[in-house]
């Protein structure tokens, strides 16, 4: 049996998701026996240019160059997996959508005005995504699980329960109950509630849960004493674009 050709690609982002793959130190060699890695920033110097079976794509589309790249890679592969918060929800770089351009341009772009700019967006704005691996950074075991499933011919299943479930099964106190601005109830889990285990609130890096009720979440946080601006910024950090998408869809539906 020929090994499936796998490519890891990255556009604008911190490349932390790729590090997550590498952090599987113990299992990595075993996995590499089963797949043929054709492209991987950090590891492979040359960027492979040919047909691929599976692609893991990391980063947010922020420029024309990124857009062209994601479209090209999609055309070259059978299975396209968006890897990490940036690729799936827009992540932190997408915050730029919620700030007037004049606030940012003088800070960042006064030297690099030649960049052809697009609104930072998750990759599914431009291409069809087969599977999403969420998180900032994604769980390293989850990535291997996806590869394992695909090798076995199984459709990988995305975890689809809110963070609260894992948090509660891990025996944590509810941070929201304590009055902290935790976004666990509206955020998709699968992270084994790593932040709340350590007493840190959930910022929503894995994107909205299937039944995320943002309106109610905002109401709850307001009752806890947080003002609208604070709450909006919190949600925007990771879930802003997807929240907006949901709102727009709802508006459309109401019309």
């Amino acid at each position: 049996m020929t090994k499936p050709k796998v490519g890891f690609y990255s556009v604008t982002g911190c490349q932390g998701c790729l590090l997550s793959v590498i952090f599987n130190e113990e299992e990595l060699l075993g996995v590499l026996e089963k797949i043929d890695v054709k492209s991987f920033p950090f590891i492979k110097e040359k960027v492979y240019d040919g047909h691929l079976d599976i692609v893991f794509f990391e980063g947010v589309v922020t420029s024309k160059h990124d857009e062209e790249m994601v479209k090209k890679i999609r055309d070259q592969c059978d299975i396209f997996i968006a890897l990490g918060a940036c690729a799936t929800t827009g992540g932190v770089p997408a915050l730029r959508n919620f700030t007037p351009p004049e606030n940012i341009q003088p800070l960042i772009y006064h030297k690099a005005l030649e960049i052809t700019d697009v609104d930072p967006s998750p990759v599914d704005k431009y291409v069809k995504v087969d599977y999403y691996i969420q998180g900032c950074p994604p769980d390293k075991k989850e990535i291997l699980g996806f590869i394992d499933d695909l090798l076995r011919g199984k459709k990988p299943l995305m975890y689809s329960k809110p963070v609260c479930i894992e948090c509660r099964h891990n025996g944590n106190p509810c941070l929201l109950e304590k009055g902290l601005p935790c976004l666990g109830p509206v955020t998709n889990g699968g992270c084994n509630s790593v932040c709340t285990n350590g007493g840190l609130v959930c910022w929503g890096c894995r994107g909205p849960a299937q039944d995320a009720n943002f309106e109610l979440m905002i109401k709850v946080l307001k009752e806890k004493g947080y003002d609208e601006k604070f709450i909006k910024q919190r949600i925007d950090a990771f879930e802003g674009l997807k929240y907006k998408e949901k709102e727009d869809a709802k508006k459309k539906w109401l019309e």
Partner: peptide, 27 residues
């Protein structure tokens, strides 16, 4: 209308016993 659909009620309930199976592959 006040339900966040977070599932904490299920997780904390002493009687909620519904369960599911998952196949976990080993190396």
């Amino acid at each position: 209308k006040d339900c966040l659909a977070c599932g904490q009620c299920n997780a904390l309930c002493p009687t909620c016993f519904c369960f599911e199976f998952r196949d976990v592959p080993k190396q």
